[in-house]
């Protein structure tokens, strides 16, 4: 298990380094969760299992399906674009049913700390409820809110704030696998 964890950490590091839209807080879920992201070395000549080209890989989920949805200011309503992303997430989770997901809700810094924790929870919960409505078993999903504690962008402009108002679906291996 220890070696397995180390390997995972390494692959996470590699995976994140390879991510073009790398979530600097992507690995912030519960300690001990496994992340199956594989190294995306950009190697040509066939699909590397676990790489972003492997449709069964979390890297594929993060990059191609899209691991996050964004929200309007002070809102937790899912836009049409967000719903399309979540449809893809649901489909992926249906196919890869040995994975669990933690949905992390976040807010931009334009709000008070406690309120933003509750607002992030609304966003994460709306995301989770949508996935459940698409047939994902509730016991594969849980959510947590980080409020404004973990921004991915730090500028004080709407372009950054918009990316921080997010719910990120973080994939992890299930207990049995």
């Amino acid at each position: 298990m220890k070696i397995f964890s180390k390997a995972l950490i390494l692959t996470i590091a590699l995976g994140l380094a390879a991510c073009t839209n790398g979530d600097r807080f992507g690995a912030g879920g519960g300690a001990g969760d496994g992340y199956g992201a594989g190294a995306n070395g950009g190697v040509s000549g066939g699909i590397l299992p676990g790489s972003a080209n492997d449709p069964r890989s979390p890297a594929y989920f993060n990059q191609t399906v899209g691991d996050r949805v964004l929200f309007a200011v002070d809102q937790s309503t899912l836009s049409a674009q967000a719903q399309a992303t979540l449809d893809g997430q649901a489909q992926w989770l249906m196919t890869n049913n040995d994975y669990l997901a933690v949905i992390e809700g976040h807010a931009d810094e334009q709000g008070t700390r406690e309120y933003n924790i509750a607002l992030g929870a609304r966003r994460a919960n709306a995301t989770m409820e949508y996935l459940i409505s698409k047939g994902i078993a509730p016991n594969r999903l849980r959510f947590v809110s980080y409020g404004k504690e973990r921004p991915v962008e730090v500028c004080a402009e709407e372009a950054c704030y918009a990316k921080n108002r997010r719910a990120v679906t973080v994939i992890s291996m299930g207990m049995g696998s």
Partner: peptide
């Protein structure tokens, strides 16, 4: 204190 359940706090 506050408790969050679903979307409700």
């Amino acid at each position: 204190y506050s408790v969050t359940t679903g979307s409700n706090t």
